[in-house]
Nucleic acid binder design. Sequence first.
DNA 1: TTGAAAGCGCTAACAG
DNA 2: CTGTTAGCGCTTTCAA
Lengths: 332, 332
Amino acid sequence: MVTMEDVARLAGVSKMTVSNVVNNRGGVGDLVRQRVLEAIRESGYRVNVSARTLKSGRTGVIGLAVPEIDLPYFSHLADLVIDAAARRGYHVAIERTGAAETGEADALAHSRLLQFDGLILSAVALDGLDERLTEAGYPIVMLGERDFGGRFDHVSMPNEAGIKAATGHLADQGCRRIGIVSGPAREGVNVVTRRYRAYLDALTERGLAADPPLLFPLDRMTMEAGRAAAHRMVDSGHEVDGLVAVTDTIAIGVLRGLADRGLRVPDDVRLIGFDDVPEARFLVPSLSTVAPDHRWMAEKAVELVVQRVHAPSRPTGEYVAPFDLMIRESTR
Amino acid sequence: MVTMEDVARLAGVSKMTVSNVVNNRGGVGDLVRQRVLEAIRESGYRVNVSARTLKSGRTGVIGLAVPEIDLPYFSHLADLVIDAAARRGYHVAIERTGAAETGEADALAHSRLLQFDGLILSAVALDGLDERLTEAGYPIVMLGERDFGGRFDHVSMPNEAGIKAATGHLADQGCRRIGIVSGPAREGVNVVTRRYRAYLDALTERGLAADPPLLFPLDRMTMEAGRAAAHRMVDSGHEVDGLVAVTDTIAIGVLRGLADRGLRVPDDVRLIGFDDVPEARFLVPSLSTVAPDHRWMAEKAVELVVQRVHAPSRPTGEYVAPFDLMIRESTR
DNA sequence: TTGAAAGCGCTAACAG
DNA sequence: CTGTTAGCGCTTTCAA
């Protein structure tokens, strides 16, 4: 391994001068700088990030903790966060929190997360984690639909406005019996409850509320579950002419499930989703959906962590992403 | 910040004993261990990974470099690699290599990649990177369809066998004019050329080869490009009754493009893809496809890097993933 | 503009 | 079973 010491010797300068060159710190004569750069090239020197971090206390890395990277929403988000961070000179480390803990000693369990200068934490990943992180006074930005009671900077989706717009759009298209295909959570504040409530509100505003509500529940937020829910809906004989799916992933399953039962979209049932995943435009029929501005969210989240790295005690804020309603074949 | 020193003082032992407890190193009395764990809890101590790494020379981290995490194939792979690595006591750092370099000094450009104990490198990401990495004698496993001339451990997809099986399956279904929708690369060894060649070979074997071949080219490997290619195919009046799409992503676009022109799948044209992305089963019609064993690939890649970490000079090997042919509605 | 000294928090090696 | 010693490679601080 080539160290700074080696480079210094090779260039006939001190370690410190090499460090200054490597970090573009100025105050180094042009001639000396050239000699040092040459020595770096020759020796194949590379900084040891651990040593730098140990000494400086800064990693230059923002952690992004998501429950699964496998999910289109999270991988897309990761991509955007990486861009936003790079623009501010930060690197992003993606951490998957979904899996069970390894056999590490308790004290070490989340130490990796705390290695970073700041953390963008997707809310689903939060359970059993928050106390340790909160107490640390560590720069954290929360992402997701839960309620954090103002304890953190928080960036969320346009849940209420988006679902209201979607439901309203179905009504505008002439739907009178509008159902919702929604996930497992029954209580608390989260994606499912927030969007379900917004759906009910939208129906009430339009005088379309059904009793009992046309809720087609899911046990998981997957395509498979969406398909099964569509089957159950059709088989139970409910006469629904419009459907709101809480996410596009579920909508894809619902689309398939309706096809399985011979129902046509939009002719028999209109369907709208939430997220605007890349496939949405390419499905047959193409999927109408609420398109939150993911780039805006990534940008905001990074901006907030970086700010907080420099001003740890700044008051926290709540931020909701803007959205577009993408009207496509599935509701026309 | 709480250090080991602090914990040691609190527990009335030496730093070393704390270190032993933290690393489950045994040779510590039960009583002392309890005292130390208690002190750790009380003080909220967390290991400083940088210090540990600096001293030990090991990070316990495997890097996974992919061009984009946004692409379903890569995010799925990442997920599987994380699992495989965890089973061996390693952590995975995902690095996106797609974007242009930042303004870092030359010597630093890829230093982050070399911080890890080993690296799984997706081939697309390789350009301009390989020399530096090769010369380092650093544990690397290549992933992807390019030709590395045996310089690295290499895990690849079943390109030839998979595409041959897919093309053969179309022929078995009665297709006689089988086309291929394929990507931009015209030369070299890569996904596109390998799969195109396998398609031609399969046709020749069956006596179905057309001249000129029914190649519908793409400028990019996206859904959008697949859709456009389908449009061009139909508009050009080619009478095709079977289509191989080099990837499922492209197949999704093709499916849509055919629908745009009023062609039905499989009645008018049969279509088969490659990858078995999660959506494949849920499309309407559901998509037949070559399903490489991604889990096998992840497992193999991790196994190989880990081996190489411990035996850097072991001879390299070539490994091709097994696959299944998933026959669904699009070819029935 | 350059350099010397000190030490970040941890662990390997050895001593007790 | 526990403690001591000696750095890992870098940057901060201060002096030249």
